[in-house]
Design a protein around this nucleic acid. Sequence first.
DNA 1: GCGGACTGCTTACCT
DNA 2: ACAGGTAAGCAGTCCGCG
Length: 878
Amino acid sequence: MFCVFLIWVKMIEDEESIEEVKESEEELIVEGKTIYEAQQPQNTGPCYLLSVTYSGDRGCALVKLYDPEAKKIYYWYDNSGHKPYFYTDIPIDELRKDSRVIGHKGFDHFERIELYDVLRDRKVIMTKIVTKDPLSVGGARGALRDIIIRNWESKIRYHHCYIYDRQLIPGLAYRIVNGNLVLIKPVLPKEMEDELIKRVLSPEEFEEEYVDALIEWASILSYPIVDIKRIALDIEVLMEIKNTLPDPEEAKLPVIAVSAVGNDGLKVVHVLRRNNISEGDKKDALNGVEVKFYDNERDLLMDVFKIIASYPMVLTFNGDAFDLNYLWHRAIKLGIPKEKIPIILTRDSAMVVPGIHIDLYKFFANRAIKVYAFGNKYKDEDLDSISNALLGKGKVKIDRSVNELSYNELAAYCLHDAELTLELTTFNNNLVIVLMLLLARVSRLPLEDVTRLGVSKWVQSLFYFEHRRRGYLIPNKEEIKNVKGEATTAAVIKGKKYMGAKVIEPIPGVHFNVIVLDFASLYPSILKIWNLSYETIRCPHEECKVKRPIPDTPHWVCTKKRGLTSIIIGVLRDLRVNWYKPKSKDKNLSQDLRFQFNVVQSAMKVILNASYGVFGAEIFELYCPPMAESTTAIGRHYIDNTMKKAEILGLKILYGDTDSLFLYNPPKNQLETLIKWAEEELKSDLDVDKVYRYVSFSNRKKNYFGILEDGSFEVKGLKGKKRDTPDFLKESFKEVINILSQVKTPDDFEHAKQQLWKIIDEQYHMLKGRRIPLDKLAIRAQLGKDPEHYDKTTPQHVKAALMLKKYNVPVKKGMTITFVKVNKGDINVMPVQLARIDEIDIDKYIEHMKTVYEQLLDALGIDFETLLGKRSLEGFIN
DNA sequence: GCGGACTGCTTACCT
DNA sequence: ACAGGTAAGCAGTCCGCG
């Protein structure tokens, strides 16, 4: 049974009768693969749309549906004759004379289509060039879009095109009724609709279009969510060279173990028998686990393939680049026929048949997911770091290569990785799966795509969907640039395209009773209130130039038509701020329900936070610098005016960054007046975000710490918590913060200062006496590129990486290098593995200490040197 | 030829 | 392959020093 998500959405079903789905036992070849499970029934109950792909076999779209009753994947093929196409503005008559078009083997026919040109606010007649297959539009040599240069919408992948034209929403439930795909419509009960409108909208927003969009989005986001039967896989391969990941394309050496762990309880490890490998001690981890031994690798792989083919969802960690890739090439090498391998490799991913494959590495490495959904809890993107941060447990540590492990050790090791992989999707009530499904709904992308693509593609997909729904022609990137032009403001940072947010100079010192005000979702609010969108900024109407100029820019915005971005992002923002977020904290609701509201609001957060940025990103198809710079210009305008108003009210501003103001002990009245003013004048929600017992600023921006009312503390931007600070400093820094968090009144500070001094002094002497172990002195820094590609300078971590390379340790982009600073002739840096304690450059570490503590001490009015000077005798002796 | 002032590159953070 | 703004450390360069 599917789990009912938010109970108030009803699923309205059609009345038609449902025939029993016939089970088929025989093996079928579908899409060039032997399949055991997938069926193409004429009628089904509610099934969730997970994916759409292109069927090469039948030359049409193929929809993959998940039946939560049978826990199976069904295939549904397009039955409407939908075909690939693109547009040109060349009239049909003219095209008919072009033999390269008419004579093209993939050409099907022309259609004359009227569309709406959003950039020029007028109708436009286009020619639709319909082809027999997607490659004839683009991709193959001599494709039609390369012949007809003046083209539109030719770069949209066909399976996405199908979703947009049919207005399909991945993640919602459909039924197959007499061979047709029918949406089970989400419908809000009337009383819910009323509450929603009352709580989310202010009266002047009651324009029909906005209300409709609000209701529609609420129905989609609160639609029931399904739990999906799934299996996590992990493989171990015999290693040729120590520390080197075997090349999957070569697949030289055998697969020695494959584990599979399902959320249906299946736990199995397939192990290949080899010479001279001992059984090993029995492992507790293997209790209740089936360990199957094989003498023949081919048999092992065939059994693994049967498992892959029998699950609707397959999970891996880095399976696109490694596990599934290796399995495929290895199987081919062993002479297994292609149709028996339920894996399809594409340029940079691996798909499975008949289900879908999710590579968790790609999902968790997505910056937006990492930062906004998981609050930067994991720093590195490997299975060990992610599971440590999210599950509280890491990988099994092994001290030898997998080649040398006993069978029991190997099986336990391999099993554990698959268990972690599965658990990353099951922890917290299937949080991750729910998140993925919600993101698929919002972006309108197949689950396989939404988990592999970045935010710019999510937003692009959602916008394309909305263009198609409204009959808008999707403009080309060049065209937007020609009509709207470039940015006009000068960035503060060299090399950036336009001016961004404003940061207010902090007032150094310790401040008690501080209140932080911030604008709720500032940029999305601005997009909504100011009607910003790529098509409405610098619109073609003369009167708008005068009527609605954008402050501090030469731009203006349309007063005649609602912008797409304004409406979509506006509705999502309003729903998050006024509905999902408050509901997620509503103590009257059950914990379960609150949790579900919370997942929705965090999925929306991911999208909303990116919604402004993509318009300033060149890679985004609707790239529009004037729109992006208008957003930040209005943001600065808001902060400036709010500061002015606050000063008039006599409030003392201590600091502010982008959308926030830190106020010193503001009287309630004035605070309320300010909030009310923002609501009336700026049409924006200014909220009390935090109340600090005290905040401590140095003279540095983006750099402070504060103790909240409940005694918990927040540390922002301080060197002491950054990744490139050595552990010995991170640890003592934490101690110091802990001491400071005990401070309740200004008088408590004297005592705290004493303790603080003791810690710093002790550490100083430990350092001078070389009594701090090497690994605590190690500095970690990530390689932004492969070490050979640093041509401008050679930073220290790169020097260390190059030294490691000489010892045949593989170093490449993305890896974290651990090194220490030494004083050894010309050499001033070494990988921690190669250094000795007596080679350490103590003075450099004293400098580190100084920066870490100065950021704190500046605020307390203490000088680091003076602090150490109290024990200056020691200093002279050393 | 050397050291200080400067710029630029790089990483990690904040909003 | 979402944005810009800030801090810090080091590499490399320029310039003045009779």
